Computed example of a mutant assay.
Amino acid sequence: MTPPDAAELMLIRHAPAQHGGRLCGRTDVPAELGDPAIWQPLQALVAGVPLRVASPALRCQQTAAALWPGAEVHSDARLWEQDFGDHDGMPFDQLPDLGRLSAQDLADHRPPGGESFADMVARMRPALMGLAGRAQEAGPLAIVAHAGTARAALALALGAVPAALAFEVAPWSVTRLRVFDGGLSVIAVNWRPL
């Protein structure tokens, strides 16, 4: 296992969500933690990370509790998943077909009553850059959040919002970003410790 760097953001996607076949951006559903053998290598890696933050979503809080049993994990509402508006809670097979969109058009697409991915990146920028500053001052920082949160951080590192949508972010995976003066660089995406 590669230990975290001193100035590193580790964005951990929550355990699989018990979504019941529905889109659950802001819908608060529990996590399916599964067999501890799946996540114990990650737990061992992040055990000593001094700074821990999680989205307030139940699936993120449960994932954080599994990774750091009994330890303090700060909740940050700014880390919530993308707001899919009227589409949130809708069965996957009933979501509207958007057709072929360019990466930019997809990033800019705003569901009725919700936010686009570009909106989400703008919303999360202050939170993520603030957390990056804390990592630079006090050591590695682990964030348990959503696939969208990890992609928003990648968008900031790449300086290209649409490009971040090309990354897959699996449950229990880690997106590792190095923090340096003025920005972020990508160490790894969709990474799992062995």
Rank of each mutant, 00 (worst) to 15 (best):
T2W: 04
P3S: 06
P4Y: 10
D5S: 12
A6V: 03
L9M: 01
H14K: 03
P16E: 10
P16Q: 09
P16D: 08
A17F: 01
R22E: 05
R22F: 03
R26T: 09
D28C: 00
P30S: 02
L33T: 02
G34R: 05
G34H: 02
G34F: 09
G34C: 01
G34Q: 05
D35L: 08
I38C: 09
W39D: 04
W39G: 05
Q40H: 10
P41Y: 13
P41W: 03
Q43R: 15
L45N: 06
L45M: 09
V46G: 02
V49H: 00
P50D: 02
L51V: 08
L51I: 14
R52T: 03
A54H: 14
S55E: 07
L58C: 05
R59K: 14
Q61L: 14
Q62S: 10
T63Q: 05
A64G: 11
A66G: 12
A66K: 13
G70Y: 03
E72T: 13
E72F: 08
V73R: 03
H74G: 11
R78I: 02
L79T: 00
L79A: 00
L79D: 02
E81S: 04
Q82Y: 00
Q82G: 00
F84L: 09
G85V: 05
D86N: 07
M90N: 04
P91R: 06
Q94A: 15
Q94I: 01
D97L: 08
G99D: 01
R100P: 09
L101Q: 15
S102K: 13
A103E: 14
D105A: 15
A107F: 04
R110Y: 05
R110H: 07
R110D: 02
R110N: 04
P111I: 11
G113Y: 14
E115S: 11
A118N: 02
A118E: 04
A118K: 06
A118C: 08
M120T: 07
V121R: 07
V121P: 06
M124E: 05
R125Q: 15
L128G: 07
L128Y: 00
L128C: 11
M129D: 07
M129E: 12
L131D: 02
A132Q: 13
A132R: 04
G133L: 00
R134T: 04
A135N: 01
E137Q: 13
G139F: 00
G139Q: 01
P140R: 00
A142T: 14
I143S: 02
I143M: 08
V144M: 07
V144Y: 05
H146P: 06
H146S: 12
A150P: 10
R151Y: 05
L154C: 07
A155V: 07
L156N: 02
L156C: 06
G159P: 10
A163E: 15
A163I: 00
A164S: 14
L165V: 04
A166P: 03
F167W: 07
F167Q: 14
E168W: 00
P171E: 06
W172R: 05
S173T: 11
S173Y: 08
T175P: 06
L177M: 11
R178Y: 03
F180Q: 15
F180L: 13
G182C: 11
G183D: 12
G183I: 15
L184T: 13
S185W: 07
V186R: 04
A188N: 07
V189G: 01
V189L: 10
P193H: 12
L194Y: 03
